[in-house]
Amino acid sequence: MTSLASPRQSFDIGRLARAVAPSLPLIVFLAMFVYLGIASPSFLEPSTFALILKQSIPTTIVSLGLATVVMAGGDDVVSGGIDLSIPAAAVLAAAVVADLVTNHAWFIGPALLIGLLTAVACGLVNAFLVVLVGMTPLLATFASATAFVGIGKVVTASRRINVTDPLVVWLRDGVIAGVPVGVIAACVISAVFYFVLHRTRWGLNLQAVGGNRDAAEISGLSPAKFIATAFVIAGLAAGIGSIFVLARGSGWAPGTEENMMMEMVLATFLGAAFSPRRIVTLWGAVLGAVLVSALSVGFGSVGIDIFWTGCIKGGLILVVVASSALSRKVNI
């Protein structure tokens, strides 16, 4: 006699998924770190840790921007908030700064200001496309990213530009009290972002908009304003990130944004797995960026083929996004 036994089974699988899905990325990461620690003794040394932090800086900064957009737009990967163009905007701003400093002998200060304004303008473009034109953020920012990369190539004629300005060199190599300057700067910037988005009324309202747009509207908040502002903040993050892009690469080189975009998406959504509320948060994004950087360093030190590294990172994005989809499915 066939009763409706199979639905009952699937119900139990659902419960299992509910219990395991949100922690899946954590489990996978933990397993990888255990493996890396065993396979490469140097992976667990303090100098490696400093290296991981240093290499994570540009990803950390752009992830702050993405986390802001996701928090304001909701964490549905397709229909919610997403900004794929942040690395492209950062690299464009870096191109502008590099061009002004190296090819036009500008002082670094005004050049950085122009770079920052460029990136903020990129954010405004996205805000316009998403809020006023009504495009899906995924499509809008994918398209604008392509445009930003193109503009960057026009500015630089697609040729590498070295930057040897003392400020950039200092951000790259400087050390204060044994801690790299870049790491300190990234911590300060992250702290400011954290305070504004998690500890102020404005930040909470922005999260409300992302969490339930109708609820926010009923509470007298204007979702469009918050979403537009989030894209501009993402542009600001891109602008700040551009300095670190220049410092990390000792100048501008074409193609830098590709790897960064993958790491940014991975870091931001990975961060959600660490949040007790299982949502994208700023500190989660920062932690995610550090973990992603740790993976890159770890794979390098074990000598894993670079192409496998790409496969593994892509696979991780799948695990992270799938687990967030699963936990959403079982939560509702």
Partner: peptide, 13 residues
């Protein structure tokens, strides 16, 4: 908002 606390929800806005 499902991931907001009770207090955050009550005081929204």
């Amino acid at each position: 908002v499902p991931h907001f606390t009770v207090a955050e929800s009550v005081f929204m806005g």
